[in-house]
Design a protein around this nucleic acid. Sequence first.
DNA 1: GCAATATTTATACTAAATCTAAATATAAAC
DNA 2: GTTTATATTTAGATTTAGTATAAATATTGC
Lengths: 130, 130
Amino acid sequence: MNKINLTTQRKAILDIIQQSHDHPTAAEVIERLREQGRQFAYGTVYNSLRYLTDMGLIRELKLGEAASRYDARTDEHQHIVCRRCGRVDEVLTDIPAAWLEAVARETGYAIDRAQAVVEGVCAECRNSGK
Amino acid sequence: MNKINLTTQRKAILDIIQQSHDHPTAAEVIERLREQGRQFAYGTVYNSLRYLTDMGLIRELKLGEAASRYDARTDEHQHIVCRRCGRVDEVLTDIPAAWLEAVARETGYAIDRAQAVVEGVCAECRNSGK
DNA sequence: GCAATATTTATACTAAATCTAAATATAAAC
DNA sequence: GTTTATATTTAGATTTAGTATAAATATTGC
Ligand SMILES: [Mn+2]
Ligand SMILES: [Mn+2]
Ligand SMILES: [Zn+2]
Ligand SMILES: [Zn+2]
């Protein structure tokens, strides 16, 4: 039962992630810190993001882009990425348990979890550019 | 209808991907080329992998690990990764279309495709380690 | 064969993230 | 409340995966 140690830096970074709903990257977190007039060492931001992830306060998302994104929503959910504008939205409809069971049968694996990245065009992009 | 130009290098790399069933990374491709006594420039391997991917002869997989993996199987399918030994196996059971439809309704996106990475422990690892 | 085009090569460079060791800050012991 | 121990931050070097560049080589069209 390790107590969570929220330093000034970690708290500031956690706040940004919790106030952001667009799954920011580490670079975007640094940018938003700077907008607030704060500036921490490069490594501190990465260390803090890892710490907060390890403590279960945030989640790291690897969606196949170059950089990881971070999410204050820690409950199991999936993501959808717009092919046009790059935005990342939540997918709260659960992956069907029956599919995971079928995959377990097919592969012989004991399944822990599944991550889905859906790709498409968001409503906004569809409306604007024909 | 662009003709595919398979140079010596591209052919050798394609052969390795087609003969491998473990979804090798670029580094592993280089390693296997060396085992065959062949050695191409670093950049040539990356260029060739990109070319073969663009031509649709192979697929690039971004499974959330640091490095991309490559797959000679180009039909739509998913992957499962062993948490213990790191092996990557095929998942041929399709993601349910009903789930994708539910996601489209939920998000308002026009969905192009979905990639799932399932994580678990493979049969072999389960048998060996307790 | 000779010019035009494409590919390979070696090398430099980039982006994301980690590692290192010194400097600070925080907590525990006297 | 000073001293000692532990944890964290910092700046900078390092790593890893991959891309960009420009010269050298190979291939194709005439
Ligand atoms: Mn999310
Ligand atoms: Mn595959
Ligand atoms: Zn969009
Ligand atoms: Zn395994």
